[in-house]
Structures are given as structure tokens and as C-alpha cells.
Design a protein around this nucleic acid. Sequence first.
RNA 1: GCCGCCGUAGCUCAGUGGUGGAGCGCUCGGCUGUUAACCGAGUGGUCGCCGGUUCGAAUCCGGCCGGCGGCGCCA
Length: 429
Amino acid sequence: MRSVKVEDVLRGGYEGERVLLRGWVYRRRKTGGVAFVVLRDSSGILQCVAERERGEVYDIAKKVRIESSVEVCGTVRREDKAPGGYEVLLDDIRVVHMAEAFPINRYKSEEYLLDNRHLWLRSREMTAVMKIRSTVFGAIHEFFRENGYYEVQAPMFVGSAVEGGSTLFEVPYFDKKAYLTQSAQFYLEAFIYSLEKVYTVAPSFRAEKSRTRRHLTEFWHAEAEVAWYGNEDMMKDEELLMEHIVRRVLAERKSELEYLGRDLDRLRAVEAPFERMRYERLIEMARDIGVEISYGDDLGADEERAITKEFEKPVFVTHYPSETKPFYHRPDPENPSVVLCHDLLAPEGYGEIIGGGERIWKLDVLLQRIRSYGLNPDDYSMYIDLRRYGSVPHAGFGLGVDRAVMWIAGLDHINKAIAFPRTIRRLRP
RNA sequence: GCCGCCGUAGCUCAGUGGUGGAGCGCUCGGCUGUUAACCGAGUGGUCGCCGGUUCGAAUCCGGCCGGCGGCGCCA
């Protein structure tokens, strides 16, 4: 007999029929006359009933431990008292593996769940998040491929820094030192001279000793770089990308969002275009709501939260003072003290999920910038070289995919958005 | 890097100077339909580690280790 999925039974497709189901024991309850085994598979949970008259089936059902793997056979019937409205009256049950006492029970701390993430992964909550995450990654690839981008791959081992400020993880590399990449950007810039529109989805590593709910040391980075694009061109693709991701999740993962308690109307509001706001205006706005901040300051976490709570959908912040951004951003020809860059801030206090902008494409300007930032041009020889042979205006961006998942799923911590989070204090499981 | 908090049974916690506890889990038994079922019995400990104070330390003091939350830094 072919096995069926829980979700298909719950849709009513097998009412009155005998079915085979495979899965894990989610809950077990027993009374004198019947034993209930709630079965979990990748598609949902379903109540199965064993009646005492069944003898051996009942004896097994009342003894099987939570999270044991089982194969069951029985007849599907409607039952209003069962979760989901259907249940299976068992005529056979086979314990594939009797689980040891499962260490996670009704009482659980965040810390314990992180220590046991390999087991907590099978919870309904993590399952919902992982399904949403899968849809987000799929939607990213879908968007880029439908819009003329080529997918490329950049190295994870690098010989020197990409951005000056961020901290690098150092790893032994034979008789040399290597570093783990913090961004594929410089490599993507090399690809635009042949492929013009490129993207990559890969991990980035940052050795920042950040202790916040929005930071991972290893995070998934969706980055793109496009020849002949300016700052505004790039933002147009980004808002369409974010709209596409959110629409996909709403279309395919509604029940998972609802399980997580996400307010769907907040996501339905995410439609392009997004507002563009100059950094200068943002500072004024921050002052209007009582935040003490002066021009040239980078936005603190409190300020960012306060401001993004004012918005219904993501908002672009542009034209930051050049000293608050990395050296490679192109200065605004109309006001060289600011750069043609943008951050995309997610609403509801989630904050920055994208950083991007137009790159300096003229050799002399780039060399002058590198020097004025106190950096060594030798460390950027490849990057500089790209400005010597048919340089073109171009722009790019990087999306923190885990942050996007956190926002879309409405999670309160980024470590709930990734299966095995790596943070300053957590390297296992 | 800075500030704050926590560490006692497999899990969640109570115990704040005098013989280490409860609920859940697990094991056994009971109950004719449960909904994180319920009832009864049993099981379960390096009180994070090291040192100090004391007649006596889970409890007070010092150091260390591990973790959590927040800030700064960033996607």
C-alpha cells in the first residue's frame, strides 16, 4: 500500500478509505478504552485512535513514546473532536524505532532549545519557519532568473578584507593566513564585465562581537551587481524583489504564517514602490519623534526601531554622509559629502535588511577614496584593476536573507530564522 | 568591547546558614473519546567549577567557566 501524507488526509481526500501513514509520534494520550496517537509528518499532525478491542494495536499505541517513528494503517473518518476534523481508526501500527524519552517537553527555555536545536528543529514552530525560509530562498532565485540575472559563485576563502571596517575570521591556509569572506561584492563586480547582471546567494562571515537579536557571525547573503545601473535603478529591482518574496510567502505559506501568529495584513501592505528618504530627512524625522541625534551620526538601534515603527512597508534611506559608509560608494556629484547609497529598512522595528548603492567606477576617484580612508591600495589591487579596462557605472546590493525571514515570519530573534545559528557565543549544535 | 541577569533531578523552577523539594518527563497500575488528558505509586542530585569564611554552605565572600538579555558595530 502506498503511504499518504497527513495534509492530504486533512483535506478530506481519503474519507472512508484505509490508508498507510508514516511519521513520528507527536502526542500520545490514553484512557481505559482507547489510546490516541497523534502522528506528525512533514505536512502536519493527525490524530490516530486505537481501541482496546484491537488488542495488540492498542497495547503498542498506549506504550509508544513521543517522537518514535511509526508506520500506521487505518480507516479515515470525520471526527469533530479531532484536531483538523479527521482521524484514523487504527488497525495496524508498527514502531520503526522506539524513541528514548524525548528531552524536550512542555517546559522549555530558549537556552535549552538552542542547545537542542537538532531536536527542536522538528517542532511545529521550527517546521513552519523552515518552510517559510525555503520559500524565501526559492523566491530570490526565481526573481533574479526571471529578470535577466546570472547566478555566479564567489570564493569563501579570501586573502584580504572586502570592507575596511568589518572584522574578519582568520583561518589557517597551509603556510599562509586566509579569511572567510564577509561579502561577495568585489567578486561580483568582476563578473559584470561579461554577464552584466549577476547575483549570488551564499554565506558571509563577520567576526563582529555583536550581541543583539539581529546578528549572526555566519549569515546568508543574497548579493547582486549590475553594469550600467545607478542607485535608483538598483532600488527599483530591490523593491520588486522584496515584493516578490513577500507575495510568494503569502501565496504558499499562509498557514505557516498564521501558525506563527503573523499579522498577514502587515505583509499584504508590502507593495512596490517603497518610499525613498534622504538621510538628512531621516535625521529630521528622528528629532521630530524626540530622538537626540545630530547630522553625521549613524542611526542607533533605538532610533532605527522608533522610526521603522512609523512605516507600513519597507523604506529606503539614501544619501548618507560618506564617512558613515564604506569607501567604494560613489559620491553624489551634486553634493560630494554624501554618497549614492541606500539602506532598506524593514518596518515594524525590524530595521536594516539591505545595504547597497552605486559604486565608484573611475580609477582616480577610487584611488583617492582608498587613501583618504587610510586603507592600503595593495589590499585592493583586484578591485582597482577592474577600473582600468572598460570601466562602467554600476550598482549593487546585499540582502541579509536571515533578517528578511525574521521580519516576514514576525520572529523576535534572528536565531529563530536559521536552523543552526552561529553567534558570538554559540558554535554548536 | 561595555552594562545587567542566570547556573539546584532529563526539563521548568522553589529553596537565601541547620537531614536537598515540587510540577512535568520516564517506569508500573487505574480509567470507554482524549485535546500539553486525568488519578495513584515508583524513579530520579558532583546544588556549574575551584578556593575561602563558619561548628555547619545550594545559601555568605572571592576567582573562574558556561549561557541569556541589552548597547556599540553591521546584512
